[in-house]
Nucleic acid binder design. Structure first.
Lengths: 107, 107
DNA sequence: ATCTAGTGTCGCAAACATACGACATTGCTT
DNA sequence: AAGCAATGTCGTATGTTTGCGACACTAGAT
């Protein structure tokens, strides 16, 4: 049923990025990490109104797409933003929206 | 089950925007409209590898969030980008990512 | 060696998204 | 008025996401 693969790879990649940031919990995690620079997984689930399991899954999605990065520190895991990948995505995003934004139309 | 409403309204709004642009078909529609400036619904479904029904639904989602705008012209409907709303969303997006992007972290 | 704390993974249920054919509606055209 | 063309909406099937409890794993503490 899924026809997503029929589109340009560049559109698919941007769509994947958009999907990852399309949940407020994941945006909240990014924001929290931007504030704290780095913190352990438990801090994040304490901070959010979600169970630890659910937060763990959201973290996994952010990890899978490369926006964050987790470093093992004994028992704990320190998460931090991955600036390089974030920059790459923002570049793609701007690249896409530049012509869209330029096509000034008055509705 | 949905706990999205437990988060800041600003995060929810950005998440809604991200969700709408999280499908390659909808990105392709935006791109197409940026190129053609304005075109009728049928042109879009001819252009995309999807049925007319499905395209109509994607158009509805873009319309609902305000990114595009359809004007009735007899039997046809002319769609065009809604620059004002696009700018508003891009502003929100940049506003959110500015601090995230600034928190330079080397992974 | 046992206990505990911090995490991840599995399996499930509920909700939501995607895709489409069939049908309804509306406005031109003859 | 009858027919056709452009579009939207409904119903439905299938796939994906969200959320969580129960379980498993591992590293340090006792």
């Amino acid at each position: 049923m899924n026809k997503a693969e029929k589109f340009d790879e560049s559109l698919q990649e941007l769509a994947r990025f958009a999907k990852v940031i399309s949940h407020p919990a994941r945006l909240a995690i990014l924001k929290y990490l931007a504030d704290t620079k780095s913190c352990i997984s438990g801090d994040i689930s304490d901070y959010l109104p979600l169970s630890r399991t659910t937060v763990s899954q959201h973290l996994k999605e952010l990890r899978d797409v490369g926006l964050i990065h987790g470093e093992i520190d004994g028992l704990k895991i320190n998460y931090c933003l991955c600036s390089e990948e974030i920059e790459r995505f923002l570049g793609m995003f701007e690249n896409f929206f530049e012509p869209v934004s330029k096509a000034k139309i008055i509705c």
